[in-house]
Every structure is written in structure tokens, then in C-alpha cells.
Amino acid sequence: MNIPVFDAPLLLLLGIVWGYIYAKKLVESHPDSHFFFRHILLLIFFVNIILSATGAIQPWGMGGNFAVAVNPWIGIFYVLSYPMWFWFGNEIFFLLWGKNSQEGGLTWSLTIKDTTKPFKPAWKSSELE
């Protein structure tokens, strides 16, 4: 079975980049975008590897330079790990830089200037002083 070796690091990188886009730009205006993007992205990766494994196309249509022949069981295990790589990339970003624009993650302590947004009231009350 031929597998594209760069899929895992690519998913990790995409997870980090998407973590940034979602947390800092989209979480408030489009909170469901994370769900849709994650599934569409993984679907594309799965379709690519299924088609390339069956010999219908070359991985990513780029010839065999990025593909390595491995034992089919290792190949299946590798493919099933795709969601984990993307999730891991997301988590790295969220942990280090926060899950939304109010959070700064663990790196928040490392800078003097605070670039995060202030928190908003969690609910409305008519009894505030």
C-alpha cells in the first residue's frame, strides 16, 4: 500500500493554522465553522488516500515522490490516525495561544503587553449596581 508520508505533518500544521483562524477570527461570528472545516478537510484527505491506494490517482496527483510503500496494516493505522494529527495541531494552538480572542493560552504570561480582548458579561442582569 502506498501512503503519502507528508499527510500527518501536513494535518498537524493545518491543525495549528486552523486553530489560529478559528480561535482568533471565527469562533464568535461562526462558531460551527470548526465542525464543518474539520470534517470537510478530513474527507478530502480520506478520499485522496482511498483513491491513491486503489491506484485511481497518484497521491495528491503529484506522482510517487511523496508516497512510500508500506504494509497494508500499517497503512490503515496511518490513515486512521489522520483525525488525531489535525486535533493535535488544534490543541497545540489552543493550549499555547487560547481558544478565543479573550484567552491568551500559556504564552499569555510571557509578554508584558496584553493583546487579548477583555471578557464580556456572561449574562444580562437588571440588578447590577
Binding site: 489552543f94 493550549l95 487560547g98 481558544k99 478565543n100 479573550q102 484567552e103 491568551g104 493560552g105 500559556l106 499569555w108 504570561s109 487579548t116 471578557f119
Partner: peptide, 10 residues
């Protein structure tokens, strides 16, 4: 406040 900014509780 720091924990809220971290987004996690170590």
C-alpha cells in the same frame, strides 16, 4: 483572571 486567560487550569 490568569486562569481565564490561560484557558486551562494547570
Amino acid at each position: 483572571h490568569t486562569l481565564e486567560k490561560y484557558g486551562i487550569v494547570p
